[in-house]
Design a protein around this nucleic acid. Structure first.
Lengths: 190, 190
DNA sequence: ACCTGAACACCGTTCAAGT
DNA sequence: ACCTGAACACCGTTCAAGT
């Protein structure tokens, strides 16, 4: 573990202002919000932004850490309240909703499950994959989920479902239907 | 129908050079290839590019019209050769492969099935949706596909499957597996 | 140790002037 | 009727100078 020195007071202040402004900017303009504009609105030079967050991904991740953590603890909450199969489906639904409705979250969640992505190894990726693994294993132990399904595959498919719902432009109204189609398959019922 | 006046010789020459160069540029740099660079490489002013193709989408569509048409006729070819269910699955597989492997095609195919997108009404959207409809109806008539599934929903889900496969970074190796998971559902077999 | 902001390279889009 | 390319506004990134 690398020992983290405490930041100088002005550095810490800038860091926090940047995070606050960045969250607003991503919410307003989406994941491609202007970095220069974020620095200006936070009242710092653009170099300062780059010092704290070398890449757009880094800033995106820092701005949404708490939301990702919330998704993680939500998984365990659902696991306590519902049977494994239902807990998994409900969590996937909330994951997809966040993917679509929280602007900037999509690219973050996407790179968390991208093979070979450096972001996949960061806090965000670890949290999401951990949560998915616990729910998947419980559902498989119960016999309500294919045993050959890897947690990361399910996360990728959920990202696909979110993408499909996004194309329908219904602010996520189609998520439950598309998740159900994935779960039940495309063959006629019965 | 609006009568199309033939283009002036130099206009036609520029139009064709732009298309050729654009296809190369999209293949090389992806859908965000620099428009300015395309104009330069085609030896025309940037204004000329904008005259012929007012938006990036318009250029993208023009550059890939023939590939889209090929997907359309491929659907009918498969319908003649295979039983309806297999023809549909094979076509979806080829659609997903094109989505991932032909750079620039993804955004085009995406906007073709985006609700409210102007591109959805263009030649590209009509062709793809027509092909999907024919295959879907045949499969439903045979009783191998859910009767409540709309062709456009299936196209959106296929786009989602392509996205999921893209995240796996396997150049499309996962497409067949992910399509199978969608078709068969996530519950244990048997 | 950290911050600033000018400087650079790049891009999309428009439009007055040209043929 | 069509083309050219300068002009404008914008963006990401770096780095010398400052505190």
């Amino acid at each position: 573990m690398t020992q983290v020195r405490p930041m100088r007071a002005d550095a810490r202040r800038n860091y926090e202002r940047l995070l606050k402004v960045a969250a607003e900017a991503f919410a307003e303009h989406g994941e491609n919000a202007s970095l220069d504009d974020i620095a200006k609105r936070a009242g710092v030079g653009s170099g300062t932004l780059y010092r704290h967050f070398p890449t757009r991904q880094a800033l995106l991740e820092a701005a949404y850490v708490d939301r990702i953590e919330a998704l993680g603890s939500r998984a365990d909450e659902l696991a306590r309240e519902l049977p494994p199969g239902e807990a998994l489906m409900e969590w996937l639904n909330e994951l997809c909703v966040a993917t679509i409705q929280v602007r900037g979250m999509k690219s973050l969640l996407g790179s968390a499950v991208t093979d070979g992505s450096s972001a996949a190894l960061t806090a965000c990726g670890t949290t999401v994959k951990g949560a998915a693994s616990r729910l998947v294993e419980a559902a498989q132990a119960e016999g309500v989920l294919r045993a050959d399904l890897e947690p990361i595959e399910l996360l990728r498919l959920a990202h696909g479902v979110a993408t499909a719902s996004e194309l329908a432009n219904g602010q996520g109204r189609e998520i439950r239907r598309y998740l159900a189609l994935l779960t039940e398959g495309l063959r006629p019922a019965g």
